[in-house]
Nucleic acid binder design. Structure first.
Lengths: 210, 210
DNA sequence: ACGAGTCTGTAACTTGAGTTACATACTTAA
DNA sequence: TTAAGTATGTAACTCAAGTTACAGACTCGT
């Protein structure tokens, strides 16, 4: 356990803080697809990612989704932190993108540790910074890019996160995360295939040279 | 000075912190249209808004803008804070929406105060929370709403910020902040006028019952 | 009073993307 | 093996929004 923690946060946190995390945090292993946070949830603890990846989603009035970004090893969910502080409901949904290991830290420690540990303070600020930056990147992509560019970006990012040139998703699933329709995605994927950038198969596709 | 500060932050911060802010911060009065922060700037200090309002903008590759949100009395720019911490360049542009008074706090104090003052810590977290939330709201609007809804939202927000049912902007200026073209805005505004929701004039428009 | 510059209104066209409909192919369970 | 369910391919259509073009009205400086 302590080794797992150190492999992700060992260089980041001082020894005393690592010990506290081990003592107070609770390890949790969740399978792919597991819903960590639902919109409207009141949160009592903040997750630190040890391994795996988590996708963070936003929902519109009709209940359709939009992928905001992924969390990886060494990340934490700033939205959750932010919700905890304000005692407000979650604005987002978080789902394990693969089998994932996390440590849950109870809220009250989050603020306490900011007074005690410089490294924790930096971590918290750094997390907010990263999340603001990621949100901004997502917003750029939605506001300024056309769907073909967004799709390419999505495929690259998904491949990077999963360490796999094969994307194991149906066109419908991709369409859902990009908040568009299946037909549009099929159309654009077919164009990418014709350009030799990907190859299409049932239930998966392979990135050739995006 | 201390009175101005107290009127905005008096209930928020303890006396000792208020004194520090007065001692260390520098008051700055800027006119409408004044550019406080430019994309790519390295930031050495963080602004606290005393009065007025500041609009925060994002730029695309072509140099066109998109309004992200407004900062008001009692707000601070979390992006700036975030940039300061990470010693990175500004991702956004900030322009005074009206004549505005701010206090500039040097970076090094930002973190120092988080260890010393509980109220400051809360303020910083609260700011991040608010900014994340605002960004999310902007993203919702861009991802999920059509231009007519975005326009209505823009007009309402602008009216609220300026405490004025009259919007003193040309169609071109509105188009620019919504990242669309003047013709589209003229078209939609005309429809709103035909529905009796606004009245149009040269260089300004009036909100009747949006 | 005149011309240059600015602002608004509108028509006509183009295009990206969402929708509907249907055909074909693969998968799985009875 | 056969039917039902699921995934993909494609055509045809609609619509919001961006583009181009131009006219008319207002403003301001000389």
């Amino acid at each position: 356990m302590i080794n797992l923690l150190k492999s992700s946060y060992g260089t980041l946190f001082e020894e005393a803080l690592l010990q506290e995390i081990i003592q107070i945090g609770t390890f949790k292993e969740v399978p792919i697809g597991y819903k960590l946070i639902e919109i409207g949830d009141y949160i009592k603890s903040v997750p630190l990612l040890i391994s795996g990846a988590v996708k963070v989603l936003r929902e519109d009035k009709e209940g359709d989704e939009l992928l905001l970004y992924y969390l990886e090893q060494g990340d934490t969910c700033s939205f959750t932190m932010s919700c905890c502080m304000g005692q407000t409901k979650s604005e987002i949904r978080a789902i394990a993108e693969m089998d994932t290991t996390i440590i849950m830290i109870p809220i009250r420690k989050i603020e306490e540790w900011t007074t005690l540990y410089k490294s924790w303070r930096h971590f918290v600020f750094e997390s907010y910074h990263n999340r603001l930056y990621e949100l901004l990147t997502t917003l750029d992509s939605i506001a300024f890019d056309q769907m073909d560019q967004r799709l390419i970006h999505y495929l690259k990012e998904k491949s990077r996160i999963n360490h796999d040139a094969i994307i194991h998703n149906t066109h419908q699933e991709i369409a859902y995360e990009l908040h568009t329709s299946r037909v549009v995605i099929s159309r654009l994927l077919k164009k990418l295939e014709q350009k030799g950038k990907i190859s299409l198969h049932r239930n998966y596709l392979e990135i050739v040279n995006l």
